[in-house]
Design a protein around this nucleic acid. Structure first.
Lengths: 253, 253
DNA sequence: CGAATTGTTGAGCATACTCAAGGAGCGTGG
DNA sequence: CCACGCTCCTTGAGTATGCTCAACAATTCG
């Protein structure tokens, strides 16, 4: 993975120069890999290091009283796990690997220092967290207001587009980076019912499922059915940013 | 309202000195009032001014295809309406007054400048937005994972505590700053069903409703029923911050 | 005081959940 | 290579939760 991919989300907002990126790059002191299901970060006090996902898919999750989990966000390569804990002083949820993952670590103190002395870096980190918040708000609307077939459709549209933006999906298909159980936990649905909803979407010709591979035979119909308006994802679009940084855009859509 | 109350949320995190607060205070160029139901900020492009609620209660809301709204956050005195739009460049939802409100405005360019040259102010603004995000995540879990009687109970616990933190509630009661219709929109429930849930909570002795006045005859039982863990609100607690700024704490709880 | 909005209740129905059981896929060890 | 055990997926049946439509009562506001 190249540096600009590593700091994809920070570069997306513009405003960082190559020196800034080099500073971030230089602060990396460790790389780890973990198996699907393992914890990447546990809830708790102030973080000793800032962690960035570089490969695989992870999630933010909170334990529930009945032993299950609520999944409140999906993290893709280029997403930070615990930046907010650096500012707030504590993690109020954990991060777990959904697929096998690779992450890099930067010392919390170094990042904290960079944020204080380099307003461009501070701004870029801030912006990346606000992008996360926009997704969170879209999830709240999705889960709170739509009937469950549209919830499922909406989540799949979002997942496909975000995976596509990091090169892990095409307009026609994606490999689902989680089990149906976890899809259900994201949406607050029972896993058996989610399974039925997937079947119904297939029968409606909006989807095709083969194991973990999902196909989108009629993406625009699915997106319309879901009411999917991708603006909230704040992904770079064709012509929006100055070209030439070599990062794969979603322009092919 | 005193200055330290105005910038309550920024002061709560610590890290601001009186000079910083004076800078913010000095940037206020206008004050407005609006009636319940009016829009405070519309969705759209980059904000010309940053808006801070000083009196009353407002909400973030998004229109839905069927003409209804999804309410994604509650704003109390001391909360900013559109800080995130300053960084992200656009508002992807609107702000509406739930009760009669008063707000103050600061030029976006001034705040933007202050954030770039004053790391303490930048950090305090950042922290206040992260506190909002933590609440948003708690809402996601609440709406996604709890049965609706517990959803309602949880939202009322949160509302009461937050209102109490700005002096608008006591441990025993609060005046509900919205109609049942809007309570329902926050939770994604039908308003008629919400009404029944409120009745059931009353019959269970967990609540008493008289018009818009809500009484909490057994607050600890209600909080236990709701699974309410107020840590996520990041409100100041007794002994946590150095005393002496004269702002009312929630210590009485 | 009257009109409009908001709150309250009933009846019937649709949605989504639980419990239970069987089948498919996958990694491990013989 | 196959058999085994495990997890995950799939389906059925029955139930509970939450929604819609409709009517009426209570507030609020002009």
């Amino acid at each position: 993975m190249t540096t600009s991919q590593l700091f994809r989300k920070l570069c997306d907002g513009g405003g960082l120069n190559t020196g800034d990126i080099a500073l971030l790059q230089a602060s990396i002191f460790a790389a780890r890999t973990m198996k699907a299901g393992e914890d990447i970060v546990r809830a708790g006090g102030p973080p000793g290091s800032v962690i960035l996902v570089t490969e695989g898919v992870a999630c933010r999750r909170q334990p529930l009283p009945d032993g299950k989990h609520a999944i409140t966000a999906i993290l893709l390569p280029g997403d930070f796990c615990n930046l907010h804990a650096l500012i707030l002083g504590h993690m109020c949820h954990g991060i777990a690997a959904l697929t096998d993952c690779a992450v890099v670590e930067m010392p919390a103190r170094t990042i904290d220092h960079l944020m204080r002395v380099n307003p461009r870096i501070a701004r870029a980190l801030w912006r990346s967290m606000l992008a996360d918040e926009a997704v969170l708000r879209a999830w709240l609307v999705n889960i709170g207001q739509r009937p469950s077939d549209r919830k499922v459709a909406h989540l799949l549209c979002e997942l496909r587009l975000r995976l596509h933006s990091v090169g892990l999906a095409t307009p026609q298909s994606m490999r689902l980076p989680m089990r149906q159980k976890e899809l259900a936990e994201m949406l607050g649905l029972a896993k058996e019912y989610l399974n039925r909803v997937l079947r119904d979407l297939q029968q409606a010709g909006l989807l095709a499922v083969e194991g973990r591979e999902i196909f989108f035979p009629a993406l625009s119909r699915l997106e319309e059915f879901a009411g999917f308006e991708p603006d909230y994802l704040d992904l770079p679009r064709r012509g929006f940013h100055p070209a030439g940084d070599g990062f794969q855009r979603t322009a092919a859509e």
